[in-house]
Write a protein that binds this DNA or RNA. Structure first.
Length: 870
DNA sequence: AGAGCCCTCTCGACAT
């Protein structure tokens, strides 16, 4: 008897059949590709082969290189080989496609439907997102689909049902699209937990991530693919060279670039010419208000039909944005001014130019935005940079160099988010209950929680069953109960219903929604902006001039206005932190320019630095351009010399420090220094920051001999000093409000009664107070403090920067006049107090410049009046 | 006093 015959009949049939079918399936796939006119790229073939070998991994390739097919091919071939094309429709998903954007989900369905329908006719595809159709929802609930396209949140909802065990236990492969986007966020943590769940339900499943190029692909792989040996996971990169071009719009020779500012409207004419020279463009700005302002400015000189220009950002209503996206896709729009809202998303093949206003603060973001333009295979990725002030030019040069060397920023994954874990544990309680130990093991199999201790786990369970020591009297906090067989389950039906409505990790701020009197929603703005308006005032929003009528509850009613508004809303968001690598390179480029010497003009190849040469030389002449190994500290405004600065108490010099670490980090450094200096004697400091440095303006002179810089900049005692510098408890309270929502301590949405967000904030605040008083070591309080340190105060980055700074040689100068570096910081301190040339004048001038480019722009000195000096 | 500055503050899902 041959060993072959000894095998059970089922295996006997399966083994040879599978091998043959694998070959046949591959051939079928290839044939299909060729009928579609697609020739496979190398990295795509590598991905299909790796999948066939049973591997999991990460596929990293630029936009437009065919990542979807790379990820799709493996699972489709495998499904064909296992005979799925003839298979009777068995209930249960075979393949999941997870994407962070709803828009991407429907776009993906369109691209996936064809190959799946052609090759796996027995398969059905369901789209399960919040806005999916009833039919799709039914299909995903009954498990009547084989391929499910969904978001992390919708997946979490599906997995919170008892039926998920049957639905998901047949899953063979999972694809996570835009993994780099989810990786550094709590959404990524939520997904990690749900993937851990899926691995238990379907132990054989293979998982593939799709990612843009990031600095830590290895880590991204490790976080996504767990419990597999090195041999079983692989990173597949598209190594075809894709040249990157960044072209800076240099100001005309007779135009000077400002030393400060960020709006960049002086370039309006140039930008308009650029936009009108191509068929369709996206203009990226860094903030929403900047997008609105640029839109208003452009529209006032727009020569075409008004409908060919649009604005797009996250505070606009969904239908407004949808309209813009449709216009971009169909090519009806000539130009859209956008924020990061168009960084990702569905492709717009009509777009052939991308313009970036001001530096994008990171290499990855710049490349991502450049990639939004139509890509021909092999063609270079191109972006036009518009400098709003001198340092932007340097940033463009640094960014281009790093992008060409393929040096990208890393995305750091989050760990130990107990608010997300609390939410997940409740979901698991809903999905048929769990045994504590088994679920703990499952949770610990994720990268986010592998370091979790037993105590922490117990604290989470305890919190869900009892609330906390101080909340024990309130039954609504008892959400979990231990059943007779040692299984935990949801305490009651109310808990169950509320929980499903609160799934997700995105917490939005309360806002006033803007509506036409006829009812159309335009979007949302902040309460304090509306509070400053009088009825009848005209403001610019959503690309329209709106007259404010009245506020009712959380709605601001408006009507259309014919005149251009004088106000534009601003939103409190967060700053885009500058990449440390970009800052470092900026300093390096300027240092190099100085080293190149007097005849630098002949040697400097970089157009931006050539343009900046006079400025850099002036900096060197008045003060110093720091070399890479130096930290420059300027004392400006103290009088004639170092000696006289000491003598004259009336003129207190400001301290200007240039670590080139980005505004966010400089804020922390300025705070730290101010606190440490204040311990030397009572004093008051004003401080301002920009991307290259910070200014500290003491009210009373500081005795330079009373401190030493090394101690002042020491990383030692960093945390305590920082906590002292700010109202740390307020920062923690702010974080706690989000954490309480994610953990389900406060419910954002109660059906029927719409609890206003403000009320929610109050109850979260109360909880914070109660816990702080009676249960100071509550696991969610500890998390709030940790998040305040890491994400509000940026402690890890600050520590890194201080470590670097202490290695540098300090160079101190006492310039008599402001330097190109210091001026920007000094000017910043007067922001909001200075008025100059009016808006319309500037626009008119830009229009004139467009019409008659030969005519020199008016060089009249700006009228500046200082209303108030503090 | 200085003085070549308009306005800083992304994005993302789900639920009713």
């Amino acid at each position: 008897m041959s060993p072959r015959q000894a095998m059970p009949a089922s295996i006997q049939r399966a083994v040879p059949r599978r091998r043959q079918d694998m070959v046949a399936a591959r051939r079928a796939w290839r044939t299909w590709l060729s009928t579609q006119g697609i020739s496979a790229a190398r990295f795509q073939q590598q991905a299909w082969d790796a999948h066939a070998r049973g591997q999991s991994g990460l596929i990293s390739a630029p936009t437009g290189s065919g990542k979807t097919l790379a990820a799709l091919g493996g699972p489709i071939i495998a499904a064909m080989a296992s005979g799925a094309q003839e298979e009777k429709k068995e209930p249960g998903f075979r393949m999941l496609w997870i994407t962070p954007l709803r828009a991407l989900a429907s776009d993906t369905r369109e691209r996936i439907t064809k190959p799946v329908q052609d090759l796996l006719p027995a398969w059905r595809v369901a789209l399960r997102t919040g806005d999916a159709s009833a039919k799709d929802k039914r299909l995903s609930q009954t498990g009547g689909a084989q391929l499910l396209i969904t978001t992390p949140e919708s997946l979490a909802i599906l997995l919170s049902h008892e039926r998920s065990v049957e639905q998901f236990s047949g899953v063979q492969s999972v694809v996570v699209d835009e993994w780099h986007e989810l990786l550094p966020s709590k959404r990524g943590v939520l997904l990690q937990l749900n993937l851990a769940r899926l691995r238990v339900l379907a132990p054989e499943m293979q998982i593939w991530g799709l990612s843009a190029t990031i600095g830590n692909l290895d880590q991204a792989l490790q976080v996504l693919v767990r419990e597999r040996s090195e041999a079983q996971m692989v990173i597949i990169e598209d190594t075809r060279p894709k040249p990157f071009h960044l072209h800076s719009i240099l100001p005309a020779a007779n135009m000077r670039l400002p030393w400060a500012g960020h709006l960049g409207l002086a370039n309006l004419g140039e930008v308009a010419k650029l936009v009108l020279s191509t068929s369709t463009s996206i203009i990226f700005t860094n903030t929403r208000s900047q997008a609105e302002l640029w839109f208003t400015a452009l529209s006032s000189i727009w020569p075409e039909h008004a409908d060919t220009l649009a604005v797009h950002h996250s505070s606009l209503d969904h239908h407004v944005r949808q309209g813009v996206e449709d216009g971009l896709r169909s090519g009806q729009l000539r130009c859209v001014v956008a924020t990061s809202s168009l960084d990702l998303g569905v492709d717009f093949p009509a777009v052939d130019r991308v313009i970036q206003i001001g530096g994008a603060r990171s290499v990855a973001r710049t490349v991502q935005r450049a990639g939004r333009a139509k890509h021909r295979p092999g063609a270079a990725i191109h972006i036009d940079g518009v400098a709003t002030q001198a340092m932007d030019l340097c940033e463009f040069a640094a960014t281009r160099e790093l992008a060409q060397q393929r040096v990208y920023e890393s995305r750091t994954p989050l760990t130990l988010c107990f608010d997300v874990l609390s939410q997940h544990v409740m979901s698991m309680a809903l999905s048929g209950g769990f045994e504590a130990e088994a679920l703990m093991e499952e949770v610990k199999s994720s990268a986010a929680f592998e370091a979790m201790t037993m105590e922490q786990w117990n604290a989470v369970i305890d919190f869900l069953t009892r609330g906390s020591n101080s909340l024990v009297a309130y039954p609504q906090y008892e959400r979990l109960k231990l059943g007779t067989e040692g299984r935990y389950a949801a305490a009651n039906q109310v808990v169950t219903r509320r929980h499903r409505m609160g799934i997700g990790t995105i917490v939005t701020q309360s806002a006033i929604s803007v509506r036409y009197l006829r009812g159309t929603r335009l979007g949302s703005i902040e309460e304090n902006f509306i509070a400053r308006l009088q009825p009848g005032d005209v403001f610019n929003f959503a690309g329209r001039s709106l007259q404010f009528v009245r506020v009712e509850g959380t709605t601001a009613w408006v009507r259309r206005s014919a005149s251009i508004g004088t106000h534009t809303p601003a939103w409190a968001g967060s700053l885009m932190a500058m990449s440390l690598r970009v800052g470092e390179r900026m300093q390096g480029l300027m240092a190099q320019t100085v080293r190149d010497g007097d005849d630098a003009n002949h040697r400097i190849q970089t157009p931006e630095l050539r343009h900046l040469l006079p400025l850099i030389q002036l900096q060197q002449q008045r003060s110093r351009v720091p070399q890479e190994t130096q930290l420059l500290i300027e004392h400006v405004g103290g009088g004639q010399s170092k000696a006289s600065a000491r003598r004259s108490a009336a003129k207190v010099p400001g301290l200007f420090v240039y670590p080139f670490a980005g505004r966010v980090v400089h804020e922390g450094l300025a705070l730290l220094l101010a606190t440490r200096l204040a311990t030397l004697g009572s004093n008051t400091f004003f401080w301002t920051c920009n991307e290259i440095g910070f200014m500290l303006q003491p009210q009373l002179p500081i005795d330079e001999s009373s401190f030493n810089w090394t101690e002042l900049l020491s990383p030692q005692g960093l945390q305590t000093d920082l906590q002292e510098a700010v109202n740390f408890s307020e920062l923690a309270r702010k974080r706690f409000k989000e954490i309480a929502q994610i953990a389900g301590l406060v419910t954002a949405r109660i059906p029927g009664s719409r609890v206003p967000n403000r009320q929610l904030q109050v109850s979260a605040g109360l909880l914070f107070d109660v816990l702080s008083k009676y249960d100071p070591d509550h696991i969610l309080l500890l998390e709030a403090r940790q998040e305040a340190l890491n994400q509000e105060l940026h402690l890890p980055t600050l520590r890194e920067i201080l470590g670097r700074i202490t290695q540098l040689e300090r160079v101190q100068t006492w310039p008599q006049k402001h330097t190109p570096f210091s001026f920007g910081l000094w000017a910043e301190s007067f922001r909001g107090q200075i008025s100059n040339e009016t808006w319309t004048e500037k626009v008119k001038r830009a229009a004139a410049q467009m019409e008659d480019d030969a005519a020199p722009a008016s060089q009249g000195k700006n009228m500046i009046s200082r209303r108030k000096a503090a």
